[in-house]
């Protein structure tokens, strides 16, 4: 029996993910130490986490919450990366220090089968400036990789989302059409981050994909700004992922007031800012506020102080400019 509407949740072995869902991106390894501070608290604020394959490979202890593992295909946009067709599949070759690393759909799926609850197939984004011929080739290889992954998935409880790529609305639609009728657990639209300045076109792509696959969960990669997310969810998208909450916090900023910067945030202050940012995105209540950090002292830098009434006494909380205890709904 087919449903005309996408489901309101999906089941993973580590828990149910209710839609709409916001998946915070996290990393493992030494590159982003703030992620290590934030990660233990993610189960309280989000239904699952998103990790890129590159960082997931550096994982020592697997978190107990549902984990989504991306293929890491975005690396095809980096300098020194090449998308190569190999026996009908798309393989990613990257060169570091004269060493060539090859990422094959098989490597991706094998790792995902070991660690992921939900996997994304190996895709190759098409930036807006790319030559249409190369774009077409990338989309074809993306589709081929997705079909291969579907046929070769061994773990039945591993949810598999096919990645949708394209260079314009029609090509995204065509890519989605190629998946219609195949038993993927969902579709994930990539390549949206460079197009976000033209949000209207993003929405058109979403609409086009949704029209082709009306009954599957739809995920949009990399768009996590609260205002956009609301619109995407209203437009029929089931989930998004983003690392913005932690990137902003690392820079001493709150989503609610990005113009105000805590210039010299300590590790635990960054942690607090990240949690506030994430709570705002996931619309969860927090037992903490960042008001005293951002507005309780003169120790911050601001590009735009207009409209803010700042407490005059250093270090004390003010009642004139507060961050809400709970995120707005």
């Amino acid at each position: 029996m087919t449903h005309s509407k996408p489901p309101d949740h999906i089941n993973t072995t580590r828990g149910v993910i209710k839609f709409p869902a916001y998946f915070p991106v996290t990393t493992f390894g030494d590159k982003y130490p703030l992620d290590d501070l934030v990660r233990p608290y993610l189960p309280r604020l989000a239904p699952a986490i998103m990790v890129s394959l590159h960082y997931a490979r550096q994982m020592k202890d697997r978190p107990t919450m549902p984990m989504l593992i991306d293929s890491g295909g975005f690396a095809s946009l980096f300098d020194g990366a090449r998308v190569v067709a190999q026996r009908g599949f798309g393989v990613l070759e990257t060169t570091h220090d004269e060493k060539v690393e090859v990422l094959h759909p098989k490597d991706v799926l094998e790792f995902q089968e070991q660690h992921a609850d939900l996997a994304f197939t190996l895709d190759f984004p098409v930036p807006p400036s790319m030559d249409p011929e190369e774009g077409k080739r990338r989309v074809e290889l993306t589709i081929a990789n997705a079909r291969w992954a579907l046929q070769n998935r061994r773990r039945k409880d591993l949810l598999l989302y096919a990645c949708v790529q394209g260079w314009d609305v029609d090509s995204f639609r065509a890519c989605a059409k190629a998946y219609a009728g195949l038993p993927f657990d969902g579709l994930a639209i990539g390549g949206m981050v460079p197009r976000v300045s033209d949000f209207k076109s993003v929405l058109e792509i979403v609409d086009a994909v949704r029209a082709e696959v009306p009954n599957k969960p739809l995920h949009v990669f990399g768009l996590g700004k609260p205002g956009l997310v609301d619109t995407l969810f209203k437009r029929g998208v089931q989930s998004v992922d983003s690392s913005s909450y932690v990137k902003l916090a690392a820079d001493g900023r709150l989503w609610g007031q990005p113009a105000v910067k805590l210039g010299d945030a300590s590790p635990t202050e960054r942690l607090q800012l990240a949690l506030c940012n994430l709570a705002m995105a996931t619309q969860r209540a927090l037992p903490l506020s960042a008001a005293h950090l951002m507005f309780g002292s003169r120790l911050w830098e601001s590009r735009n102080q207009a409209g803010l009434d700042i407490a005059t006494k250093p270090g004390r909380r003010t009642k004139t400019a507060t961050q809400p205890l709970t995120a707005p709904t």
Binding site: G263, A265, S266, P267, S297, L299, P314, G315, R316
Partner: peptide
Amino acid sequence: LARTRPQLHRRFAQ
């Protein structure tokens, strides 16, 4: 947990 004077000031403000 506190690496600069302003950070120390903010911590002990709590």
